Simulated assay, not measured.
Amino acid sequence: MITSRIALTLGLTTLLTLGGCSAGATESYEDMAVSAPGMAVGESVEMAAVESDGKAGYTSEPDVITTGYLSMSVDEPSAVADQISEVVVASGGRVASRSDYSPVDYGQPSAYLDVRIPSSDLDATVASITDLGEVQEISVNTVDVSLQKVDLDARIEVLEAAIERLTTLLVSAETTADLITIESALAERQAELDSLQSQRDYLSDQTLFATLSINLITPVDATPSDPDGFLDGLMRGWESVLAFFAGTVVWAGILLPWIGLVVVLVAVGWFIARIRSTRKQ
């Protein structure tokens, strides 16, 4: 009886030690990366994996999260948004969100999409999308998350070993107190493992699929580009003259009723003043 209690106590102590090791895994990997400042991030991550597991568990190519923004000028934003959705789905991706704006009285239509594209097909898919309109702005950003992946994998491995050991101790528990203690520790480790696995799955999804935000506007709302030559400049100047006169006509139509109202009020005031002056005479 005493021997079994001692063994159980030693087992729980060992598991607590393993839990502490999982919490300190991040610092150990960060120290490995910092200790070699001239080494690339992907290479330091690979060395960390080799030193921790004794074998190369990760490739030298770093895993990155890719995000981007694309703004295009198109004639019909909603129709082009449908075409973009088809291109994304055909590449193996998906449309995460979409919003369409179709004004009734004034303004210009527009559309906005957030799409997830497989990272391996990102360049080809973006090229297909840009063929559907005139590109106004495009940007792509990448963030290396190899170190985070290594850290999560190491902590998950430690927790899985701790849970396996706790399960073995649970079977051999001889008292109610031991049973409650082991079940509490097992539930805590399992909750932490589920959380880390969720983080790992989310990180994998972010690296496997790039996130691209696409804004579709009409040529009226598009930012004008610089003229290419004399003829282009001449056409821009003529368009500006026409736009000025068109705006002048619109404002004249807006002001005309007010001018008429002011004329009527002035005429009424003059007529009243005229009557008063006649009575005084």
Rank of each mutant, 00 (worst) to 15 (best):
129 I>V: 15
269 G>E: 10
247 G>A: 09
81 A>P: 07
165 R>M: 14
175 T>H: 05
248 T>K: 01
171 V>H: 02
278 T>Y: 08
66 T>D: 02
95 V>K: 04
189 R>Q: 07
230 F>N: 00
68 G>V: 06
161 A>T: 07
85 S>H: 02
67 T>H: 03
133 G>W: 10
260 G>V: 05
196 L>W: 04
12 L>P: 02
103 P>D: 03
197 Q>H: 06
213 S>A: 12
232 D>C: 02
167 T>V: 07
143 V>A: 12
129 I>A: 07
82 D>I: 07
57 G>T: 15
126 V>C: 02
187 A>S: 14
53 D>K: 15
216 L>P: 03
229 G>C: 06
243 A>D: 03
13 T>V: 07
265 L>E: 05
267 A>P: 00
45 V>I: 01
74 V>Y: 11
89 V>A: 04
101 Y>H: 13
82 D>E: 15
163 I>R: 05
224 P>I: 04
25 A>E: 02
144 D>E: 12
4 S>E: 09
40 A>M: 09
80 V>T: 15
204 S>L: 08
142 T>E: 15
188 E>V: 04
70 L>P: 11
148 Q>Y: 03
62 P>M: 12
266 V>L: 11
275 I>T: 00
79 A>Q: 14
26 T>Y: 07
114 D>P: 02
15 L>M: 14
47 M>R: 12
70 L>F: 08
141 N>L: 01
146 S>N: 08
188 E>Q: 08
10 L>M: 10
19 G>H: 11
178 D>R: 03
208 L>N: 08
279 R>T: 09
255 L>R: 00
150 V>C: 11
230 F>E: 03
157 E>L: 05
195 S>V: 10
139 S>E: 09
126 V>G: 01
210 A>P: 07
6 I>R: 14
6 I>E: 13
265 L>G: 05
11 G>C: 06
108 Q>H: 13
193 L>Y: 01
274 R>N: 03
71 S>N: 09
125 T>K: 06
200 R>C: 02
150 V>M: 13
276 R>D: 06
79 A>M: 13
137 E>A: 08
191 A>W: 01
189 R>I: 00
33 A>S: 11
235 M>K: 04
260 G>L: 13
103 P>M: 03
204 S>W: 05
199 Q>H: 10
138 I>W: 04
245 F>A: 01
74 V>D: 08
224 P>K: 05
140 V>P: 01
124 A>R: 14
